[in-house]
Simulated scan of single mutants.
Amino acid sequence: MLHLLSLHYTAPERAAEPFIPGHVAYLERHHQNGTFLISGRTVPTSIGGVIIAHGVDRPAIEQITAQDPFVVNGVAEYTITTITPGRVHPALDSLLAPGC
């Protein structure tokens, strides 16, 4: 399963600034354990960011997003879209093995 995580600021972008180091550590932790495949800022950055996650079910990804320091501190929230891949580029086959 794949999850498209859209992060949206719920406060002015400046309000998130004190929590950036914790947010970056959160991203790094989940990239290192393989849950987050891609993460990045939106353009414009004032909207928030996007993450593509895999390898966990919906309840697990809901728990993971709830731990983001931006969410914990009330400056952002996630919209989660769960995707069951129908077609996958051959370059991603091994990464997105059945059951992911």
Score class of each variant (00 low, 15 high):
L95E: 11
D68R: 01
D68V: 01
G48W: 02
D93N: 08
D57I: 03
Q63A: 15
G49I: 02
Y78E: 05
L37W: 09
H30E: 13
S94V: 00
H8T: 13
T82N: 07
F19G: 02
P85R: 00
N33G: 06
A66C: 04
A91N: 01
G49K: 00
V56C: 12
I20C: 05
D68G: 02
R41K: 15
T10G: 10
L2E: 02
T10C: 07
I64C: 04
S94N: 01
E28R: 15
A16P: 15
R29W: 10
I20H: 11
I38G: 04
T65E: 08
E17F: 14
R58V: 15
V24R: 15
M1C: 03
P59N: 14
T82M: 04
L92D: 00
A11V: 02
L4T: 00
H8E: 10
C100L: 14
L4I: 07
S6C: 12
G49F: 04
L27F: 15
V24C: 06
A66H: 05
V71L: 04
H8Y: 13
F70Y: 15
H23K: 11
I51E: 02
P85K: 04
I38F: 13
H3P: 00
R58K: 15
L92Y: 04
E77S: 13
Y26S: 08
P85L: 03
G55D: 07
E62Y: 07
G40Y: 08
T81P: 00
T84R: 14
T65Q: 08
Y9N: 06
E77F: 07
L2H: 04
P59Y: 09
P98G: 07
I51M: 13
H3W: 01
E13C: 12
D68Y: 02
H30G: 10
A15D: 15
L2V: 00
T81V: 08
S46P: 06
I83P: 04
V71D: 10
D68T: 01
A60S: 14
T84I: 05
L96A: 03
H8P: 02
G40T: 10
D57Y: 06
Q63M: 07
I52E: 02
T84Y: 11
P12T: 10
P12V: 01
I38N: 05
G48F: 03
I47L: 06
E13G: 08
V71E: 08
P85I: 03
P12Q: 11
A25G: 07
L2N: 02
V50Q: 03
R14N: 13
H30M: 13
A16G: 15
L96K: 01
R58T: 14
N33F: 07
I80H: 05
T84S: 12
P90Y: 04
E28G: 13
G55W: 09
